[in-house]
Design a binder for these strands. Structure first.
Lengths: 336, 336
DNA sequence: TTGTATGCGTTATCAA
DNA sequence: TTGATAACGCATACAA
């Protein structure tokens, strides 16, 4: 049997209220403080969070909703966010969505019924279940949504990268290296992220008075397999591009896999720019030039903002955009 | 204000007990069932888990303790475990340890005070705080510990791979390819995992009547940087080995990084076998020959066993060992 | 500064 | 099958 404040009360001869006061950082007479502390020590007492939550309506639990498709990204995020939040006594509850609408819904409800104090959500791709659930939420807990904007939902704070300019930067870089035929591999056609990244691609081409050839625009699904297949599609074109810009991590892996498998030399036969994390850069030879999301900074910002919100200091919802950087590797050759 | 069973009781005219009975799957008259269900629907009712937990002493929360050093491994584990457990209404609470003893301890206590129904722990390396905490635990909740054995702690179920034979398999393979000078990069010298993997290394050499040269045995720390530095050390030897066996994922990355940086051709200048996940295999060219841990199977086994334990069907604690496989890539050349 | 009493939302016990 | 009531462990309002 776990010890309760009642046990401590009995052991110390003090009332429940005093013990509770001590536990909540209120003033207690020095003598009693020592009394209580030794009792806690001896009994191995821990606060029962269920009881406390029931009473205070604060769970000290942060819900983290991540899509099954973004596990690498999520893992980084979790480690940073958890580190910051745990220092303030919060625990992180994880739920992975994106498998089936029914199960997703159950999971979200489950999360809700544990009344998380706040929520961090990575919607990644369009997820109707998630959006429906979000809109049905009436409790005004702070919610931070990462990585994309849900069009008609403005009750959350959005933290994202400027996808359009990141994408433009990549294509500008390729053009600067004299590439004329540039292919882009995007995710699902109507996803926010892909739409934005495509915008940057087109904008760059337009600004440089280059033709936009729809054959070079491939839509895929943000998976390794998807990247592989997209790359395969590109190599079936009569007129091969000299460079490929792959717009996410997993697809970049898939593309590299395809190129390796077909003995196509990266940076020679074909130039390549990837997207997301810099894990890869040093492992692949030649290293891959990549657009890097400042994920650590985003995660830190998210965690600290959440903490602010929870202190009710403010809850302002202006979206914040982070800027990606281009990390040069050896995967882009300069043409003449 | 969230709706409670009291609201449902009032709306339906039924007593709290009946509502509770319905909620817990007990028999309720058909008419009342419909009454309740529509009330729940209309009020948007959700069970308050804090209250339920307080009463039942079951949190439906599973604690997951992962080391900061094993984030890749952990991410895979989480996704599999979460998928299985969430179907049964459990949520997964994550805590990352390994930064500082003090914070680690706070986190573990925090986890405990939320009375998780069960725990999954990946200790990775020696962690005194964790061990002390485990031993101080009196509540008999099911605990599954992955990846290594804590010597004098037998209150948990252990799920691991047979490190010794996995390691032996790798070295046997190299010897079979006529490698005579084989270097091994391990983690911290007194860690369970490293000790086991070193055993396999030595056993293989002994069985093949080969000399064990301490110069070829490098201890490091399971990080990317550690792998890099270990590799550097190896290349400072007067008498270079022809093959390196790296005993974990991150260090394998570090080694590849070093080799790329120094233009040492993998599979030509030096042969390489890595350890853990097969993410890499296809990305690096030539693909890396690796010892693969059956992490998905282990995670599934862990989740299902936990579910069994929670149903109190049994809680047997015989350690279970999974077998690694060797996945051939192009990173090991055959010598003559 | 401390003690007493009440209630948070739920389940469990018992009687009807 | 249902209803009334107590209890889970804690925080809080109020009185002392």
């Amino acid at each position: 049997m776990e010890a309760t404040i009642k046990d401590i009360s009995e052991k110390t001869g003090l009332s429940l209220g005093t013990i509770s006061n001590y536990l909540n950082g209120r003033n207690v007479k020095e003598i009693n403080r020592i009394l209580i502390e030794t009792a806690i020590e001896e009994l191995g007492y821990n606060v029962n969070m269920s009881a406390r939550s029931l009473k205070t309506k604060q769970s000290k639990l942060i819900g983290l909703v991540v899509p099954s498709s973004e596990l690498t990204f999520s893992a980084k995020l979790v480690s940073v966010v958890e580190k910051i939040l745990s220092k303030k006594g919060f625990m992180v509850m994880i739920t992975v969505i994106g498998h089936s609408p029914l199960i997703d819904y159950q999971k979200l409800i489950n999360l809700q019924s544990r009344n998380a104090d706040a929520m961090i959500i990575i919607p990644s791709t369009n997820n109707e279940t998630l959006e429906k659930w979000l809109k049905s939420l009436k409790s005004p807990i702070p919610i931070i949504i990462l990585d994309r904007i849900i069009e008609d939902y403005n009750k959350a704070k959005y933290v994202l990268v400027n996808n359009e300019s990141a994408s433009k930067m990549a294509v500008d870089y390729l053009i600067h290296k004299n590439h004329k035929l540039i292919s882009i591999i995007g995710g699902d056609m109507d996803g926010y992220t892909t739409i934005e990244r495509m915008k940057g691609y087109k904008k760059s081409l337009e600004e440089n008075d280059m033709e936009i050839n729809p054959d070079y625009i491939i839509y895929s699904d943000f998976t390794i397999r998807g990247g592989y297949l997209a790359c395969e599609k590109i190599f079936q074109l009569k007129n091969l591009p000299s460079a490929i810009f792959v717009t996410n991590y997993d697809m970049t892996l898939g593309v590299i896999e395809y190129l390796n498998e077909h003995n196509i030399k990266i940076g020679e036969g074909i130039s390549l720019i990837g997207f997301d994390l810099d894990d890869l850069t040093k492992i692949v030879n030649p290293s891959i030039t990549m657009i890097i999301q400042p994920i650590k900074e985003m995660a830190e910002y998210t965690a600290y903002r959440l903490l602010d919100f929870l202190k009710r200091e403010y809850y302002e919802k202006t979206p914040i955009f982070f800027t990606c950087t281009l990390k040069e590797g050896g995967s882009v050759s300069e043409l003449i």
